[in-house]
Design a protein around this nucleic acid. Structure first.
Lengths: 237, 237
DNA sequence: CGATCATTTGACACCGGTCAAGTTTTGTGG
DNA sequence: CCACAAAACTTGACCGGTGTCAAATGATCG
């Protein structure tokens, strides 16, 4: 109740996105004593599919993947999350997927009922959900319609901020169009995200290397030698 | 502003799902004169990807599909929506996909800014988003990890209300375990939803028929002769 | 009843999966 | 820092599930 009032006072107008107004209210809400902030090691499990969904989470620092398993062990990573993404949000009573850190992470933990009663949370959450929704749409295209090459290329491009989108400014006029990426994922995790096998991911990466499109600095550290060329391999253009 | 106040008075507590409280407020909001209700024919386009996202939509009756296109014409249907689902919700300024009716439909149209300023809308919208999110996760598993047989079987099971979920009650003790489905989709639309080709969809359906699992009453009207058996073909068990 | 469109079926090719080594990287203990 | 083991990754050979292309069949609607 107290949070609810505070949320109202600070937030007031609730938006579907495009504003940064609700965030101040959310930040204030996050400072309340009932909101905890936890540290996780890499590859810690935050929650399992089927666990009672009593908390919601906000990733402050690091990376988290959400995945689902089929009874025979096949795995699909459904989302890869970065700072400011929220997860564990659900309309049902149990989590619909597993959440595991990819890197050491700092995660804010909020009691579900607290958030439900807080308007500032609503607005903040909706904005997060909408962005994630778009990412899921894009990922459905990748999984349903792209070749292995296009999947891996799209995956690499996703780490290059500001490029590969519809409003891509193109390479800066001066110098080379390079970019170094820290994957923070094993080949298996990449494969399970892209709907491929580990061997196929490995083969495509080797081939990109052979063709000079990328250089492997360290197994999970890849240099894209020409971002613009890589972008043309994604199928999205 | 007026809507905002009304939403507050009627709604009060905002929830992340599981309640039906915000819905009354939403229903009242929907009755306001600025909210229009439109009728569409089958295969009408509601909006195109890239159109300025100035309105949000609530499907009252009928079915709608959302799809994305790659520059070379490949298509992926990312969501199939039914009554009470909302669409056109976005954090960015333009729609991220195309929306097209599958059947004649009744659709409520709300100005985006009106909804953004209405708390009742927030709560209602969040609930819809969460449910759609879960559906998208499930669909990612289908697209990334299921065989053609499993995809088509999963697709058919999705039309059997209350079965195939984790808490499936199983067949009713008495009599046969049949169910008749109206697809309302062409083979091409099904293929584009399942990430397959039209030929593969057709072959799988023919094969299910040959094996006696389904009977085709009319091209887009299929009888599942044994729901429980069909369910075991989905890979989800 | 014919024209048009949707669907089915067949033959074949190829992408990506499977299985089985190798090779490299990482981590641990001396 | 090195030695060794374990894990992660790469590479090769082969196969099978889907896609592609083409033709036949079936539905729909004047």
């Amino acid at each position: 109740m107290a949070y609810s009032d505070r949320g109202l006072a600070a937030g007031g107008s609730a938006r579907l996105g495009g504003n940064t107004h609700g965030d101040e209210a959310w930040a204030e809400f996050a400072r309340s004593p009932r909101v905890k902030t936890n540290r996780y090691e890499a590859h810690d499990v935050v929650f399992f599919e089927g666990d009672p969904a009593e908390r919601i989470y906000e990733l402050i620092e690091g990376a988290v993947m959400l995945y689902k398993l089929l009874p025979d062990g096949r795995r699909q990573v459904v989302e890869i999350l970065g700072p400011n993404d929220m997860f564990g949000l659900l309309s049902s009573r149990q989590y619909d997927c597993n959440a595991e850190t990819l890197t050491p992470a700092v995660i804010r933990v909020v009691d579900r009922r607290d958030a439900e009663q807080t308007l500032a949370a609503q607005s903040h959450i909706t904005r997060c959900l909408l962005a994630q929704m778009e990412a899921l749409h894009e990922h459905a295209v990748l999984l349903g319609r792209k070749s292995a090459y296009e999947r891996v290329s799209s995956f690499l491009m996703r780490f290059v901020a500001g490029r590969g989108t519809a409003d891509c400014p193109g390479p800066t006029a001066a110098g080379r169009d390079e970019h170094v990426i820290a994957l923070n994922m094993t080949r298996q995790e990449i494969a399970d995200y892209l709907g491929l096998t580990i061997e196929t991911v490995s083969r495509v990466i080797s081939d990109l290397k052979r063709r000079g499109l990328i250089a492997i600095e360290k197994q999970d550290r890849i240099r894209i030698t020409n971002v613009c060329t890589m972008c043309h391999q994604t199928g999205t253009q």
